[in-house]
Structures are given as structure tokens and as C-alpha cells.
Nucleic acid binder design. Sequence first.
DNA 1: TATATCATGTGAAGTAAATAACATTAACTG
DNA 2: CAGTTAATGTTATTTACTTCACATGATATA
Lengths: 214, 214
Amino acid sequence: MVKTLRVPEATVTRLSIYSRYLERLDRNGVTSVSSGEIADGVGVSPAQVRKDLAYFGEFGTRGVGYNVKDLMRYTLKILGLDRHWNLVMVGAGNLGYALCTYKGFNMRGFSIVGVFDNDLTKIGKRINDLEVLPMESMPDIIKDHNVRIGIIATPTRAAQEVADYMIKCGMQAILNFAPLPLTLPDYIEVRNVDLSVKLEILTFNLGFKSAQNV
Amino acid sequence: MVKTLRVPEATVTRLSIYSRYLERLDRNGVTSVSSGEIADGVGVSPAQVRKDLAYFGEFGTRGVGYNVKDLMRYTLKILGLDRHWNLVMVGAGNLGYALCTYKGFNMRGFSIVGVFDNDLTKIGKRINDLEVLPMESMPDIIKDHNVRIGIIATPTRAAQEVADYMIKCGMQAILNFAPLPLTLPDYIEVRNVDLSVKLEILTFNLGFKSAQNV
DNA sequence: TATATCATGTGAAGTAAATAACATTAACTG
DNA sequence: CAGTTAATGTTATTTACTTCACATGATATA
Ligand SMILES: NC(=O)c1ccc[n+]([C@@H]2O[C@H](COP(=O)([O-])OP(=O)(O)OC[C@H]3O[C@@H](n4cnc5c(N)ncnc54)[C@H](O)[C@@H]3O)[C@@H](O)[C@H]2O)c1
Ligand SMILES: NC(=O)c1ccc[n+]([C@@H]2O[C@H](COP(=O)([O-])OP(=O)(O)OC[C@H]3O[C@@H](n4cnc5c(N)ncnc54)[C@H](O)[C@@H]3O)[C@@H](O)[C@H]2O)c1
């Protein structure tokens, strides 16, 4: 039975991690797994694993555990990864280059089908098999490839303007790497990836541990 | 009065964001700010802003608000950013290159003082003013620059081994970009930056919104 | 077929975090 | 200088999330 309770974002995050862990087990030929083993593998409690899965149904067999391949497929499906997702990216800088060449996204069913920049010296350059395009080409690419998700990898000052343009072009979700909170309509899904924040959690925690450094 | 209650990690995360927002206000010449303005600026509730700050003391004036420069300095100090942090990084690939050249880290008081790789074709190459070094040089660099934090930007399969080596070299905290949960002693601070997860939160949420795409 | 063992699924209990509400203090106004 | 407005700091309330505990169903064994 599929419940339609509000699912905590923390649960979705863990589901993504479980799912990748299950893929690894599957590649290693493991066919069956328990909530305890998953828990050990990803660093949470077994109850948490079962609770997270319970939001979406019953996938295991009591007394036995879970079938790795099946649970992997279920988690992928829940995450919307039982199909292909085309993405566009704005900002062909250092980070944009790294993201474009990253094979990890393809492995999860993502393809970057358009990279855009407003720097004339970058437009026309190639990143793998993609040509960097001018911003004006975005609407066509989005239409042709049925794109719903955009990635922002521009400098901070350009991020809001780029986001607005993406939405005008029909994007429904944005992954933003610029360290700036975007102001967007509620119906747009936005998530920020902020690398400095994680680093500063580390310095915060180290701050309590020792002050031996000057 | 500084309390030493357990501070939620979400609070530290927001503090990092407040602090950057305050820097922006300061650069723009704003001298005074209210919790409501901060809240609007970063997308949380005013009560949340005050609650977060309350973990660490009283920084405002009732009826008035906060002095931007002062609050900025306080937040930076809380995060441990009232001083310089030297970092080392392993993995001079695409992501490593982007991170090394990223000026945003310097602006928050971080310097990458060593980049290491095990690929002989990369060792000796330059990234800005840094030379890519062999792994064996790590202990010396760490000692010379009093480094406590390491960044992992190697492929997944190498991440655990690299983390172990870092700890052997005396690192106390690790920022890990490889999509793999590391197994490390409790006294080591670790945070993972997992870019796929954020993307998959978007696909999860879009999954509920519409199934119009095939 | 009875018995022991195992691990899921889930309601209840416990913990943590976010929001709301308000008392307190500062500044402004006429 | 009393009265009004503003915005903090903090307590109370609500909401959300996690952990616990165990009944349930499955498998294995003799
Ligand atoms: N490089 C990193 O490791 C890193 C780390 C954390 C955060 N970030 C953030 O990611 C973003 C990109 O970083 P980067 O290092 O790749 O920067 P970059 O300067 O190398 O690249 C930015 C690209 O965006 C393009 N651009 C600028 N304005 C534009 C506009 N209005 N429309 C379209 N394209 C535009 C530029 O031409 C450039 O190619 C920044 O916001 C940065 O703060 C980067
Ligand atoms: N590129 C991205 O946009 C991106 C996005 C998300 C996650 N990641 C993750 O970040 C990590 C790095 O990604 P990348 O794209 O830069 O990969 P990359 O292959 O470009 O670079 C990896 C580097 O690590 C070095 N390396 C390999 N084994 C090593 C070892 N044992 N010791 C020292 N160095 C070693 C390689 O020589 C190479 O230079 C990966 O784990 C990847 O999954 C990257």
C-alpha cells in the first residue's frame, strides 16, 4: 500500500544513498540484504532504514530481508530514476566543466543536453561532445529534449537573473551552485549545493575540539 | 552568556548562510539589520534567525535590531572563521581543479596549500601557483602549514584509502566529494558533499508534480 | 508438524527542531 | 516625558523526526 504522507526530505536523501549502496551490492553479486546490513553500509540505524522504506510500501520479506535487485529497482523508481532525465546547465566555467564531464550523473540516468554561457570566447567551444551555446538557444534545446531541470554554475551575481530566465524558458526545477539564496516562485523546485557551508561545519566543530592552533 | 547546549547542525548551516548574507549587506554599506530582514534575505523565519543566534549569546538590541558589522564578526567567530585555515586536497582531476581555482574559499579564510595525486602524468603540473605533488609529500606539507582539514576529490574507489592515509598523516577533518560513506574513527569530523543526492531530491519532487513526460 | 530463529513492518514513546507568542527593552513622537 | 511603535530574547506550543519494542510472518530443522 502506497501512503501519501509527507515524506521528510531526510528520508529522500537517505533513499538516494541506499539506492546507490544497493547498486554497489548488486554489482558485487549480492542478492539478499537485511536492513541491518544496509544500515551498517551507509551509517544509519536499521530502524531508520525500515521506517524510510515504509513511507512507500513493503519491499521485504519478514524473517528474510530484501532482494537486492528488487529493492534497488524500487528505490530508483521512488526517486524518479526509472527513466531518463535531460538537463541543461548555464555557466561553462571550471565547475561547469567538471559537472559536464562527470560520468556519475549518466550512471544515474541524467544527461546534460545543453551548456550555455554568455561569454563569447566560450561559446562554440566543446566540452566532450557538447558545444557551448549562447543563452538564446536555451528555449529550443529545452523544447527539443523535454528538459525540466536546470543547473546553475555561473558566478553569484548572475545566478538570480539566470534562474529567472530558466523559468521563463519553462524549467520546473533548479540545482544551484552559486552561494546565494534564489528568490523564485513556490512552484519551482530549487536546491542549493553550497560547498563552503560544509567546510564551515567542519571548522565550527574543530573549533570546539582544540584551540592548539594559532 | 554563551551556552554550551548541543547546537543542531541545521543551525550551524544557517549560521554560515547568515554570515555570508551579512558580508553582502556590509559590502553594500548597510549598517543595521533586523531578524526579519535576514530571514527574508535567506529564506527562513525571523524566529528561526533569533533562535539560532540565541544558542551563542545576545547580539542585538531590542527594539532596534543588529549591527551588521558586529553580527557579521560574531557569526564568523562562531564558525571558527576569525582565523585562517589551510587545507590539503587529494585528486587533481576535474573537480579538484575547479575547487583549487575557486576564489570563494579564500574569501572565507581558506587556503589550499597542497594538492596531491598518484597519477605520474599529473604530478608536477601546476594549478595556479600550486604544484601537484605525490602522495608521499603530504606529511611534510601538513606539518609545515599546520593543516587540519583535508578534501577528497578522487574517484570513489580510492576515497577510503585516501581518507585512511590522511588520518595517518594527522588530519582531523575531511570533506569528501566521493559518493561513498567513509568508515572512519569517531574523533574524525567528516562531511560528504553529494551532488547526485540533491539532483535526485529534485527528480523525486518532480515525480509527484506531473507525469506528463515519457 | 512442532519448534526455534530471524528480520520485517509498525504503533508507541521519546527526542529534537521549528513556530508561535509574548514580555522586555529601546527609540521615536508630539 | 508619557505614549506608541518596533524588534529582540525567551518561554511555551506544536510539529516533525527518530528510536524502541514487539507482534507478525517467513524459513530452517529435526
Ligand atoms: N569552482 C568551484 O569549485 C566552486 C565551488 C563552490 C561554489 N562554486 C560556485 O559555482 C559557480 C561557478 O563557479 P566557477 O568556478 O565555475 O566559476 P567560473 O568563473 O569559472 O565560471 C562561471 C561561468 O559562468 C559564465 N557566466 C557569467 N555570467 C553569466 C551569465 N549571465 N549568463 C551565462 N553565463 C554566465 C562565465 O562566462 C563563466 O564561463 C559560482 O557561483 C561559484 O561561487 C564554485
Ligand atoms: N566532476 C564532478 O562534477 C563531480 C560531481 C560529483 C561528484 N564527483 C566526485 O568527485 C570525485 C572526483 O571527480 P572528478 O570528476 O574530479 O574525477 P577525475 O577522474 O577527473 O579526477 C580524479 C583524480 O584523482 C586521482 N586519483 C585516483 N586515485 C588516486 C589515489 N589513490 N590517490 C591519489 N589520487 C588519486 C586521479 O589521478 C585523478 O587525477 C569523484 O569521486 C566523483 O564521483 C565529481
